[in-house]
């Protein structure tokens, strides 16, 4: 029986899923950088690091990526950034306009900005591990003898909502040279240190957009050996004012986090490897695009025509 779709059955599909998952997961067990939280700052940091050949995985508890970046505020799709963050929108290939009468304020939409940020990060070779909770951090003594964050303990998100009496489901751990807390106001990774008495967790202050955006970017960086904060987690880590419905600082905080992480990796003796996981992933994407298979809509025009003719 000739059908519209290729003659591929259940076992081939299951095997493809399992093998691909295994290959990708194996590549991030010993990652250079683990980012917790795939909101705008985490996505941008992940893409920027992958672009520089860093083996980076971004762990997200929800099944969807993007955090609060899908909606601009008060459930309205228009989304604002203040200059100079529109330059990041340029890099993402995102359309935007100036806001009427307000110099330095730009409007795009959540669906476009968020989807293009995710696509951009994937194109750079970043790995996303969604539906996954960071349950704990891994602490080890560093070369200087002091504790250093050295990994993340993870489990599937649904495990956390199962009844306690029937679940004793161990997580697994992935190791990394740097952990970036991009979990927004929760500051989940930093809160683990706070629970152990190793850091303060003051929580954010009241909204003050003009001040907060500058402070978030200024304070993005290491808050503990091996642990960085970026995005809204910075406000929780330092008691800064909350930022409100504008996203420029999230984008620039992600950029800055990536730059600082890259500098620290180099201090640790890291060098980009041409055969490293991130470069392999990016090369695979580029080769696919060059050969007209799959990604980035390369064959979209032809595909529409072929599907219509076949159907």
């Amino acid at each position: 029986m000739a059908g519209l779709f290729a003659p591929v059955g259940e076992k081939e599909i299951t095997r493809a899923l399992v093998n691909r998952f295994n290959t990708v997961f194996d590549s991030i067990i010993d990652a250079d950088v683990v980012i917790v939280g795939a909101g705008p700052s985490g996505i941008i940091a992940a893409g920027e690091l992958a672009k520089n050949g860093v083996n980076v995985v971004c762990v997200e508890s929800n099944n969807y990526l993007g955090g609060g970046f899908w909606v601009g505020g008060f459930m309205m799709n228009p989304l604002t950034v203040r200059a100079p963050a529109q330059k990041v929108l340029d890099e993402l290939g995102c359309h935007y306009t100036g806001a009427d009468g307000t110099e330095g304020l730009f409007l795009t939409t959540g669906p476009e900005a968020c989807s293009k940020a995710i696509a951009w990060a994937c194109d750079q070779g970043a790995v996303f591990q969604n539906v996954t909770n960071m349950e704990d951090i891994v602490l080890r003594n560093g070369e200087d003898g002091n504790p250093r964050v050295a990994g993340a303990v993870i489990n599937w998100s649904p495990v956390a909502s199962l009844p306690r009496q029937i679940t004793c489901l161990d997580p697994v751990a992935i190791e990394c040279k740097i952990l970036i807390d991009a979990t927004g106001h929760d500051a989940d990774a930093l809160s683990k240190l706070a629970d152990m008495g190793l850091a303060e967790l003051p929580g954010h202050g009241s909204m003050w957009i003009e001040r907060s955006e500058d402070l978030v970017v200024e304070n993005t960086g290491f808050v503990y050996p091996g642990l960085m904060v970026c995005g809204m987690a910075v406000t929780t880590a330092y008691g800064l004012p909350r930022m409100g419905p504008t996203f420029g600082a999230m984008l620039l905080s992600g950029k800055k986090a990536a730059r600082i992480a890259l500098e620290d990796l180099k201090r640790q003796g890291w060098t980009p490897r041409e055969d490293g996981p991130a470069n392999r992933r990016r090369r695979e994407i580029e080769e696919n695009v060059a050969s007209g298979v799959g990604t980035t809509g390369t064959r979209r025009e032809n595909a529409d025509e072929e599907i219509l003719l076949t159907a």
Binding site: E135, P163, C168, L169
Partner: peptide, 10 residues
């Protein structure tokens, strides 16, 4: 639900 014994070590 409160999570599992493994999800809340601290």
């Amino acid at each position: 639900h409160g999570g599992t014994p493994m999800s809340n070590p601290h």
